[in-house]
Structures are given as structure tokens and as C-alpha cells.
């Protein structure tokens, strides 16, 4: 009951207020029930582009991280724990990096005048900063995806490594190979499904968190299209207060999407756990 109150209470308060404000029932602009803000948001192409862009960035960041982490485990399982001689695996290091610092580091490394561009100049590949193919501020979100992948991939290497040990994936892959499977086939058909199934709920929540990221898109994202989190802050922070109901409508729309997706992701978990136990 206490847990419901301490987490659910503020969430319910926030959602109720967003609904009331966006419908003209609360806040500074309350003039009675009105669907104007919702109609404007749902008709606005930018809303759907931002939602699609957020989901694309989340899926691409997570997809690249999953592929990278599985490759690390498949090619050199010991690499997941490499460097542990000093007591802690270096794969843990990016977990210690705040998103704001990750964004700053991306600017310093990957920007047009960043360190890589300077090396490219020293090697004679470019003559001006503008010639460097920086992924930052691109409309396809590549800068955000690269930076988020750099943070998430190491975490997934650690997570998958632990899950692989927990589910004895190494032994099962070996067994598959003794039965005639190729190294790639054994990992593709035995190792990868086992690890991904065990990690599915975490990956689902991670996908939603990456889709709603704020700091990294703020620092290395393009001004258009923007992630939905940036769109909400843009609408919310304008001097013209008339856009606030729209900000609340977009925020509530995103809340509903995430709530539905996370319910699906987390409901799937006990079934997976049951089948593992069987």
C-alpha cells in the first residue's frame, strides 16, 4: 500500500494534471472543457514525426547495442570479463558516465572541430572542419544513436555475460557444437535466443528509456526532427503560454504509449520465467 502511494500517488497526480490542463480544466488557461489542444497536437505532423523519431532512435540505439554485445560474447566470451585482473571490468566504466557528460564527450570527440576531425586533418583527409563527416546534429539521429550505443553496449555486455553464465549458455553452445552445429549456428540458434529471452524485460524497459532520453538529444541532436522529450520542453518553455496545453497533451500522449508498451513488456516476463522453470 505504501509503495502504491509513494510511486503511484505522484504518477497519478502528474497524469491527472496533464489531462486536466490539456483539456482546459486546470491551470492558468482553464476556461472549461476544450479539446482544442488535443486536436492541434493530433493534427500536427510534428507530433507524429517526433514520436516516430523517438522510437527510431530508441530502437536503433538498443539494436546496435544488442548486436555489438552479442558479437563480443560470441567472438570472445572471455572478453566480457577482460581486465577484471584489476578488480573491476572496464565494461562497467560507461555505466558511471552521466548522460550529460556522454553528450559533452561526443561533442569533443565527434564534432566538426572535435578530436577525430583534428586527427583526420593531421592525416591529410580533410582541410576544413566542415569536411569532417560528423554524425552529430544529423537529421537521422546518428549522433544520438552513436552516443547512446556507446553507453548501453558495455552494460549489455555485462548483463548478457552474467545471464549467459546463469543459464549455462557456454555449455549448451558446446553441446550444440558436439552435435554438429557450426560455431556461428550454435550461437545463433542456441546462445542468442537464450540470452535475449532472459534479458527481454530489461531490454524492453531500456528501449522505452532510450526513446525518452533527454540530455543526449539535447546536446547532440538536430533542431529538427526532435525527440518527443525535447518537443515537450520546447512547447512547455515557450514565452507564449498558449502552447502549454499542447505540451501537456504531447506529454500525456507519450505517457499512454509508454504505459501500454511497458505493461506488455512486463507482462511477458512471468511467462518466460515459467517456461525456463519448466
Amino acid at each position: 500500500m505504501v509503495v502504491w502511494a509513494l510511486v503511484g500517488g505522484p504518477m497519478l497526480l502528474g497524469v491527472s494534471f496533464m489531462a486536466a490542463y490539456s483539456l482546459g480544466l486546470a491551470g492558468l488557461l482553464a476556461h472549461g472543457l476544450s479539446f482544442t489542444a488535443w486536436a492541434a497536437v493530433l493534427r500536427d505532423r510534428v507530433t507524429w514525426i517526433s514520436l516516430g523519431f523517438s522510437l527510431w532512435v530508441g530502437a536503433a540505439s538498443l539494436g546496435a547495442s544488442i548486436v555489438g554485445a552479442l558479437l563480443v560474447l560470441a567472438l570472445r566470451p572471455a572478453a566480457a570479463m577482460a581486465g577484471e585482473a584489476v578488480g573491476v571490468t572496464p565494461w562497467f566504466l560507461p555505466i558511471a558516465v552521466p548522460p550529460m557528460v556522454a553528450g559533452l564527450t561526443a561533442v569533443l570527440w565527434l564534432g566538426n572541430a572535435g578530436e577525430l576531425a583534428r586527427w583526420a586533418y593531421a592525416l591529410g583527409w580533410i582541410r576544413r572542419p566542415a569536411e569532417f563527416p560528423s554524425p552529430l546534429y544529423s537529421r537521422d539521429g546518428l549522433g544520438i544513436i552513436v552516443t547512446q550505443t556507446a553507453l548501453v553496449l558495455p552494460f549489455l555486455v555485462v548483463l548478457f555475460g552474467r545471464l549467459a553464465r546463469l543459464h549455462r549458455v557456454g555449455e549448451l553452445v558446446e553441446a550444440a557444437r558436439t552435435l554438429g552445429a557450426s560455431p556461428v549456428g550454435a550461437w545463433r540458434r542456441v546462445g542468442t535466443p537464450l540470452v535475449l529471452r532472459a534479458a527481454a524485460p530489461t531490454l524492453g524497459v531500456y528501449f522505452l528509456a532510450l526513446s525518452g532520453a533527454f540530455e543526449i538529444p539535447l546536446l547532440v541532436g538536430a533542431s529538427y526532427p526532435t525527440m518527443l522529450s525535447i518537443r515537450v520542453v520546447q512547447l512547455f518553455g515557450q514565452f507564449d503560454l498558449s502552447t502549454r496545453p499542447q505540451a501537456y497533451a504531447v506529454a500525456l500522449l507519450y505517457t499512454l504509449v509508454v504505459a501500454a508498451c511497458s505493461a506488455i513488456v512486463l507482462r511477458a516476463r512471468p511467462r518466460a520465467a515459467r517456461s525456463e522453470g519448466a
Binding site: 504518477m11 497526480l13 502528474g14 497524469v15 494534471f17 496533464m18 524497459v205 522505452l208 528509456a209 525518452g212 532520453a213 533527454f214 518527443l228 522529450s229 515537450v232 520542453v233 512547455f236 505540451a247 501537456y248 506529454a251 507519450y254 505517457t255 509508454v258 504505459a259 508498451c261 511497458s262
Partner: peptide, 10 residues
């Protein structure tokens, strides 16, 4: 799962 921005705005 929800963006902290949405939580903050709410």
C-alpha cells in the same frame, strides 16, 4: 520507462 521530462512536466 517514462522520460524524466514527462514526469517533471506532470
Amino acid at each position: 520507462a517514462l522520460s524524466p521530462v514527462v514526469l517533471g512536466v506532470g
